[in-house]
């Protein structure tokens, strides 16, 4: 049935996995190799990500316009945080939008991406074509994506209003109406995200041994049951990846709104607020850093909980 079946080379004695790593003492050169393999990337990440991140945490307790040296930085303690939570009118809307964004991405594009992956996971004429078309938005640039959706949503000239007959009378202001634009942009975000999720699941589904499904069908399971009882559990590693990616995308969402209207007027997102305060002609480094730290803490909350769970499960199995 398959060209290469894993059962034939080594029939694995169960639990052998647990012994990995310490099976044999590593030779000296191997130790060195391992050290280098791990060491160089780790050093780079520590130096360029974590070091600066810690520096930013420190900066979040200061007031600084980004000009001059250490002596120009004024320590303000928790003032930035207090002000952000109480007087910054864009903050809470931004948090809310991020959460909506996250919930949307987890529910719709993810489910639809999985659905499409399942549909495409078979020998199918035009299968590659379908995949390519669905995946294509993922590789398009920020500029092009923003621009494309501007063309789509433009109230006077856009394709959508023209198609539904609202271009001349009773215009729908997709991007200008603050009650509507978040959802309009989410469609664009979903347009990108679905293909991404689909691809990941497609990769995962290819790794599902078909004999498992056959066995389930022999047992009389229908397609729905086979999927949920056999395929879906096997997709667990992919599920983790998809979930993590979706959380990242949801929390860090930035480019589409930035391209459309700089994240204003109903499209506020935390990452946009950070950008506004940090990049610019006279920036509020402390303020922006504090916003970034808040986002960081939320992200870390999600990711650490999840990673810890995943690893616990793995240890148990």
């Amino acid at each position: 049935m398959t060209i290469l079946d894993i059962d034939q080379p080594v029939a694995p004695p169960p639990r052998r996995k647990g012994r990995r790593g310490r099976a044999t003492a590593l030779a000296g050169t191997d130790r060195l190799t391992l050290g280098l393999m791990l060491g160089i990337p780790t050093l780079l990440v520590l130096a360029l990500i974590w070091g600066p991140a810690l520096a930013s945490v420190a900066l979040s307790f200061t007031e600084w316009d980004g000009v001059g040296g250490l002596s120009d930085i004024r320590w303000v303690g928790l003032q930035n945080y207090a002000d952000i939570f109480t007087t910054y009118p864009r903050f809470w809307p931004a948090v809310q939008h991020n959460l909506i964004w996250l919930a949307f991405l987890i529910v719709l594009p993810t489910a639809f991406g999985l659905f499409l992956a399942v549909l495409l996971d078979r020998k199918l004429r035009f299968g590659r074509l379908y995949q390519s078309v669905l995946y294509m938005p993922v590789v398009l640039s920020l500029a092009l994506t923003g621009f494309i959706w501007q063309l789509m949503y433009n109230p006077d000239q856009g394709l959508i209003n023209s198609l539904i007959g609202h271009a001349h009378t009773d215009q729908i202001n997709w991007l200008g109406n603050p009650d509507l634009n978040l959802y309009a942009v989410l469609v664009a975000a979903g347009w990108k995200h679905t293909g991404y999720v689909m691809l990941l699941y497609l990769a995962g589904l290819k790794a599902v041994d078909p004999s498992l499904k056959e066995a389930a069908q022999l047992d009389g399971a229908n397609g729905w049951q086979t999927f949920w009882q056999v395929t879906f559990p096997v997709l667990r590693p992919i599920n983790v990846i998809v979930l993590v990616i979706t959380v990242i995308e949801g929390l860090r969402a930035f480019d589409i709104v930035y391209a459309l209207n700089r994240g204003r007027n109903g499209l506020e997102l935390v990452s946009v607020l950070i950008t506004d305060n940090i990049i610019g002609e006279s920036s509020r480094i402390g303020w922006g850093s504090a916003l970034a730290v808040i986002l960081l803490v939320i992200s870390l909350g999600f990711i650490v909980t999840y990673l810890v769970q995943v690893f616990r499960k793995e240890e148990r199995s």
Partner: peptide, 19 residues
């Protein structure tokens, strides 16, 4: 004025006013 005030507070304030 201070660009920090212009680009963040003012633009968003004016947009909120128009809404």
């Amino acid at each position: 004025t201070d660009p920090r005030f212009a680009s963040d507070a003012m633009i968003n304030g004016v947009n909120a006013f128009l809404n």
